[in-house]
Amino acid sequence: MWSYFARRVAIGIPTLWAIITVCFFMMRLTPGGPFDGEAPVPPEILANLRARFHLDDPLWRQYLDYVANLLRGDFGPSFKYRDFNVTTLIAQGFPVSLQNGFSALVIAIMIGVPLGIFAALGQNTRRDYMVSAVAMTGIVIPNFIMGHVLILVFGVWLKDSVFHLPAGGWADGALSNRVLPVFCLSLPYIAYLVRITRGGMIEAMRANYIRTARAKGLPFRLVVLRHALKSALIPVVTFLGPATAFLLTGSMVVETIFQIPGIGRYFVQGALNRDYTLVMGVTILSAALIIAMNLIVDLLYSLLDPRVRYEGKR
């Protein structure tokens, strides 16, 4: 089994390299460039800038330089935030996104999974319909609306009450500044997890072996927790792999609404500004996270179902 995972890690490296390469050339193929702002830059300055950022070198040269720098852990200078290099921007922003995303993930799991089980076990009863309706609402309402609603309620309407929460800003990560954005981030994930867990649990409870477990006279609680839960969680784990990678790299919408200095906003800003290096940096980061999460998901599968076998034996 471990050799399987060693090989998976080894395959991850060329995968990442392929992503870097494709992404690098695709960025350069898109029309426009980093210095095509609204106000045209005078030609002399533009020439200087292009020279400073080596944009006049042949493309293959730029690519080789970029990869060589990457190997040294240097993501290059940002084209837009010219006093910063991308490594610094990520080092400042990523911990913020990571903390928020992780908190949102934990909250989503702790609320979504039990609620999904609760709904499944009362399948087609009132409690199932209620939980499912709330979950559906959570999925349907986009978070740019939910974010503003939360700000309106807790930041404005409840301003003079104990429930008042800051409408935005980060204040170096003060708890009260985190509550709304983390909640807003977690809401759609709670909703998805309710639905997926519910489906998984209903499916698991239909299995023949659940009938066997009940025929043994085991109390219902044990039938659910010992015999049904593991296979019910397989679709949950499948969903959580990419979802985790998404959450940890920050949300453009939530970070913009609540003015949080994470890296989520760099995805869109970087792309709009043709900030080549910044886009590359955040893309590489999320690609690496997704590769890692897929590996963890595979590991979890083998814990949930011993029939999962990895080619190349154990």
Partner: peptide, 22 residues
Amino acid sequence: NGLRGDKLAMIFQDPMTSLTPH
């Protein structure tokens, strides 16, 4: 539950799916 598995037992058709896989 007090009777099932104790005084009253059942064997099912499909042994492939009647045991908990994990």
